[in-house]
Each structure stands twice: as structure tokens, then as C-alpha cells.
């Protein structure tokens, strides 16, 4: 199975969600479904018993809801006319005296996706090194490699550099997912110095706080997880 192809399709889809207003689409979908439902009620004969039960015409409810929604939209329009802080107006943020280097901006998700896309695009076709028992890159190993590069709490590495240094696209994908997983677990943080700057990975907890079993449990169910119980001392990329 080609992971790259799946990833491409996924990214393309994400790209599309960026352009579309999904909630708007959902509104329309619901409205369309309601209208189709009403139409079907009119077209299809129904037993008189059911007709009597439904005293209120469902169309009335729909009309009333539409009217109320019109009012909401009007109110939203009114709100939009107010000059807003951050749009037309600026205020002075109170600032404390600087005490150290400026904090880095948190990375944004689209920067990550762009990077991921770029890394995938950069790699050529996967090398033909398949063996009968080759089950693909080892998730735990990929994670440990990243941790080794970080070298403990406070370590910072450029994510793009890590990914480019890997041989196969599959390893890049697995490593990328591993980084995301470790961010989710609160071990790592993703930062950018500014918008569109390179994405770096920062280790935010001590090595002792890293429970590698949390990673194994995620992928290697049923496996004894021997590979994963390696102490971090055994780090070597």
C-alpha cells in the first residue's frame, strides 16, 4: 500500500477544506435535506393515522426557523459594522520589561502540513529494498531517533532537517506522525520564530518523564514491545 498516495489525497483534502467554508456547506446540506424531506412528504401517500398525528404543518416550523435565522443574520450584520480592535482599531498591549529572549511563536498547523507536503515531494520514489519480512519503518525507532537528536529537555531541532535526513518517504511519514504523537503526549513542542519561518521541534520534558510504552501501546498491540523497552541511554541514531 502506498502511504504517499494516501497522504497526498489527505493533504489535498485538507487544502480544500482551507478554501471551503465547511460550516456554510453544512448549513446548506441540512437545508437541502429538510426540503427534500418535505417534498417527499407531499409526494408519498401516507396512512391517515400518521396524518392526524402531525397536526402542525412541518413547513410552518421551517418558515419560523428561517425567519428567526434571518434576524440572527441581521444582528450579525450589525455587529460587523462596529469598528473592531484588531481590524480597524489598535490598542497598546501592556508590556512587561523584557527578561530574556523573545518567546517563539507557537507553530501553526498549516505550516506543519506545508512542511510535510514539501518533504514528501522532495523524496524520490521509494528505494526497492523490500524483503519478505520487511514490515516498514519501526515507529518506536523513528521516535527514539528524534529524541536522540534533541538530546534532552530544552533541545531544539529543525523538523525539516530531521525529515530530509531520512532515507525513504515511508520513514519520513512515520517520523512525522511520531513527532505529532509526541507533541500530543506533551513531550515536544512545535515552534516557529515567526509566521512562515522554519518549524522547529523542542523537547519540553526531562528524559525521565518519557514513557516510551505510551508510544508502543499506540502502534504495536499484541507485540511484547521488546524493542520499545530499550532505555533512552541506548540512543544512537
Amino acid at each position: 500500500m502506498e502511504v504517499g498516495r494516501i497522504a497526498d489525497a489527505y493533504l489535498e483534502w485538507i487544502e480544500r477544506t482551507r478554501a471551503l467554508d465547511l460550516s456554510l456547506a453544512a448549513d446548506w446540506l441540512l437545508m437541502a435535506a429538510t426540503l427534500v424531506h418535505l417534498k417527499s412528504l407531499e409526494l408519498l401517500p401516507r396512512p391517515p393515522a400518521i396524518l392526524e398525528e402531525e397536526e402542525q404543518d412541518p413547513r410552518d416550523a421551517l418558515i419560523q426557523q428561517l425567519q428567526e435565522y434571518e434576524r440572527v443574520k441581521a444582528a450579525a450584520d450589525v455587529l460587523e459594522t462596529f469598528p473592531r480592535v484588531g481590524r480597524e482599531i489598535h490598542v497598546r498591549p501592556p508590556r512587561e520589561a523584557p527578561t530574556g529572549p523573545a518567546p517563539l511563536a507557537p507553530g501553526d498547523v498549516f505550516a506543519l502540513l506545508d512542511l510535510f507536503h514539501e518533504i514528501l515531494a522532495r523524496g524520490g520514489p521509494p528505494e526497492v529494498t523490500f524483503q519478505a519480512d520487511d514490515s516498514g519503518p519501526d515507529f518506536g525507532l523513528c521516535c527514539r531517533r528524534v529524541l536522540a537528536l534533541l538530546g534532552g529537555k530544552g533541545g531544539r531541532v529543525d523538523l525539516g532537517t530531521i525529515l530530509v535526513s531520512l532515507r525513504t518517504p515511508a520513514e519520513r511519514v512515520v517520523t512525522f506522525v511520531g513527532v505529532l504523537e509526541m507533541v500530543r503526549l506533551g513531550w515536544l513542542d512545535i515552534e516557529q520564530e515567526r509566521h512562515l519561518a522554519p518549524v522547529s521541534v523542542l523537547q519540553v520534558v526531562e528524559d525521565e518523564a518519557l514513557d516510551l510504552h505510551l508510544l508502543t501501546g499506540w502502534v504495536e498491540e499484541g507485540e511484547p514491545g521488546e524493542q520499545m523497552t530499550l532505555p533512552l541511554g541506548g540512543r544512537s541514531a
Binding site: 467554508d21 460550516s23 456554510l24 440572527v72 444582528a75 450579525a76 455587529l79 484588531g86 481590524r87
Partner: peptide
């Protein structure tokens, strides 16, 4: 400041209007 005018999505405007 290198910023862009902050916008509220249409749905956010509507919900905010209802709450307001």
C-alpha cells in the same frame, strides 16, 4: 506591525450576535 485585519467567520459572527 505586519498583521492582517482579524476577521470573524460568518458563523462566528452569527453565534456572537445571538449571545450578545
Amino acid at each position: 506591525l505586519g498583521t492582517r485585519p482579524q476577521k470573524l467567520s460568518r458563523s462566528a459572527s452569527e453565534v456572537l450576535a445571538i449571545v450578545a
